[in-house]
Design a protein around this nucleic acid. Structure first.
Lengths: 245, 245
DNA sequence: GCCGGCCATTTTGCATTCATTTTTTGTCAC
DNA sequence: GTGACAAAAAATGAATGCAAAATGGCCGGC
């Protein structure tokens, strides 16, 4: 068996986490959600060939809805479809990653701008709360907690922008990056960590003052720095610190 | 015949303009390109029901590749797929349009930032060239020429950002807006026109100086103003001026 | 005359089938 | 043993078929 997917029998891919209380009537939609999660979570190696037949067995469906879902995932940029040669998980080059991070930076920068126009004091207070929580994780060197809270902060800013279109685009690009994170076992460097905390202070400060342009700049730069850290991590993956007291 | 699509016989949708020298081996890819253009160009009224069978006849194919293309267009946000009730051209509310313009503003703002880092003097010179050309159209009250050159300028800035991911996303959102433009027969107000020219002067100036943050702000604001003009135009469509000496 | 339920037709969703293309395997010559 | 060629196997791309759902028309009732 040459297949790159673990071959432990038949249905492997779980019936959609449904963590966000989402529901999808049609089969292809359900399949789409499941497959997307499955790919984003890094269950298929980069560039691995994924025979349709096998996926069909795993999901317990016929090829028609599966192929529809694959086309959509390809449009989203998660996989690529080679003519007559099937679907492959899209292998992101370093350049691709840089581009992705920059686009994310642009979207967050935009989110910051829009948030300044629309955010309520209560929302700012909630973000402050998250900020302190994150600071706690930082002090305790709890990388995982830090990471999650960090993500919630950024999502809160995007939510405060009151723009569903932006939110959707953001989620799409975030998914592509998350896949790399999952599979490459990302972690920030210690040095970068403290810097990131300082940047978050500045973000919060600008947000409080509704300093539109300033926040936009800070958010962009913050993501830019993340990008640099990520690329460095990929280039020399030995020098990371996932958890340490 | 209740159909909303002009019923002049069988294949109606042309075999892909192929203006950009694009080629697509697979049928569903070909169909995707054709259908996307067809929808973007406003050939199907907002919210119109589009029976698959009819589209199949028009395109001379079976339902399978068509449905695959529809799924992708839905993912791109051009149409929406109601479960068991077929595909409809997505009707954009005023709010949707505002959101789209804001996202476009964010992407152009980002493009400006990145362009400042990467643009060559030659590219700036080319944009200056376009700028003067556009100014000529402005002086001659040539709305169409103005509009096209304007678009080329913005595309040049995006191109100068050297980010394919951004370019793709930009093209996607631009398509959604263009559809509205095509069908609503957009036009700027005279007053706004002069303002836009001044903004373009500022854009060019900031670009020459590679003033990253400044350009980012100006581009965002420029698009924001476009947004306002567009919304006003939609709200009271009688007060426009498409061409006048 | 208008409204609501029932049935025929249409349309969608998915499975299955058919036709190519690709990939693998097996064989033969060197 | 290695390489190339050819046939077999498998995979993809597209078309067709079938069941379920929705649409539209019709009739009866109020």
């Amino acid at each position: 068996m040459k297949s790159t997917i673990p071959d432990t029998g038949v249905p492997i891919i779980p019936p959609a986490g449904n963590g966000g209380d989402r529901q999808e009537a049609s089969l292809h939609g359900e399949i789409l959600l499941r497959l997307r999660d499955y790919v984003v979570e890094g269950n298929i190696p980069d560039g691995a060939r994924v025979p349709e037949r096998q996926l069909c067995e795993m999901l317990g469906i016929s090829r028609t809805p599966l192929r529809e879902a694959l086309k959509v995932l390809a449009a989203e940029g998660l996989i690529e479809l080679l003519p007559n040669r099937g679907a492959r998980v899209r292998q992101l080059s370093q350049r691709d990653l840089e581009e992705l991070f920059d686009v994310m930076a642009g979207l967050e920068s935009l989110a910051g701008r829009l948030a300044c126009e629309a955010i309520t004091d209560a929302e700012i207070a909630a973000i402050e709360q998250l900020h302190y929580e994150m600071y706690g994780h930082y002090l305790h060197r709890d990388m995982h907690g830090y990471f999650q809270t960090n993500q919630r902060i950024h999502e809160s800013i995007v939510a405060a922008a009151r723009n569903e279109t932006l939110k959707t685009a953001y989620a799409n690009f975030a998914g592509r990056i998350r896949r790399v994170r999952y599979s490459a076992n990302f972690a920030r460097k210690r040095q970068r960590w403290a810097e990131a905390m300082r940047e978050h202070e500045a973000i919060l400060d600008a947000l409080r003052r509704r300093a539109t342009s300033e926040l936009s700049d800070i958010l962009f730069q913050h993501l830019r720095n993340k990008r640099t850290a990520a690329i460095e991590h990929l280039t020399e993956p030995q020098e990371d610190s996932l958890a340490s007291p």
